[in-house]
Design a protein around this nucleic acid. Structure first.
Lengths: 187, 187
DNA sequence: TAAATAACTAAGCATTCGCTTAGTTTTAAC
DNA sequence: GTTAAAACTAAGCGAATGCTTAGTTATTTA
């Protein structure tokens, strides 16, 4: 009946995601998305409605990709050791060649203003809440741990993880590994 | 010979700084600066050359204001205890009413792209290097501390401080205090 | 082969951005 | 009081933003 799409929507979102990851949401213009995704603006808006739609799909893909790491955490019964593994895995996940891009979600939280885009903000909050829940779950696996302290320890770990997302752009790899090691000392 | 300025440059920078602090650099437009500073665009450019100039002056003022805290750290001989105090003081410093604004510098580092504005980026790096140096200095005051570990511990503390700047916008005050307490446990 | 329709191209829309400039008002020196 | 210069107002500059639309091309169905 009509012409077929000359691009694969999943493939172009993969490219969009990498651009957002490197650049942030606001700093990535639709013209840049055009070039990176290799399709015209018309096609972008036809497939994803608007720039926000492209980003939300990018977050979905990011979530799917990082699942390979969170799944390990989710299926583990090794308490805090698995959380530490998650930190190292995350660092590896955020690597692109020699540089670290941080976490797409954390990067965006830092950039977006709460009231400027509540839809995106809600998606981002959902993401980090999920990770914190996994931390709590795993902390509870350690028998000797004081249950009353678990919530505070989860916050502490989230703080370290958020920090790591920024630090990874500033510090060297061996510094980052030291940071993780010290974070889990005596916890 | 001529008309006098109808505004005080220090006063209007104070207002600009607070806006940047809440909003970030890119997200703050010159139109917003006009309103907040209470002066016309012409006056802004006459006094500070350009938007970047306004921001650099804002950083200077921020530095001057946070000196009340860093001075305490600089003049202390209490080792890591003084660093912990600095964390609590910073939290208080970043408070505006019920909400926490984080650190102006950290907020901006997260927003600015390295190559998009190297001048501002350099100013920001200088700022955080200074704080890390203070951390190293204070860690060395503790006799029993292993000197080889001090650099890594300074990185760890910077990571926690960077994290705190983000966390302070998400977590409640008592959560933040718990995070600081756990950060300094057993260090 | 012809008609129908989805997918494409490219130009252009209104708005906002950082910044400038033409023209007016105020004030100090003479 | 006159003059000169700095400080002001407000309009508008070119470029970039997110998004739309008029017009063309390609492909499926009949």
């Amino acid at each position: 009946m009509a012409r077929r799409k000359q691009y694969n929507e999943t493939e172009v979102i993969e490219k969009a995601m990498r651009l957002f990851w490197r650049n942030g949401y606001e700093s990535t213009s639709v013209r840049m998305l055009e070039k990176e995704m290799g399709i015209n603006q018309f096609s972008i808006y036809a497939s994803f409605k608007n720039k926000e739609g492209v980003f939300l799909e990018s977050i979905k893909l990011y979530n799917a990709q990082i699942k390979s790491i969170t799944n390990i955490l989710e299926n583990s019964d090794n308490g805090i050791e698995s959380i530490k593994t998650y930190f190292f895995d995350f660092l590896d996940f955020s690597r692109e060649g020699a540089i670290f891009k941080g976490c797409l979600v954390t990067n965006t939280v830092n950039e977006i203003k709460e009231d400027s885009n509540p839809v995106i903000m809600a998606a981002l909050k959902r993401f980090s809440t999920n990770i914190r829940t996994l931390f709590v779950r795993n902390l509870k696996q350690d028998d000797k741990r004081d249950v009353k302290e678990i919530e505070a320890q989860a916050d502490y770990l989230m703080n370290a993880l958020l920090g790591l997302s920024i630090s990874s752009k500033v510090f060297q790899e061996n510094q980052l590994k030291n940071i993780i090691n010290i974070t889990f000392l005596h916890l």
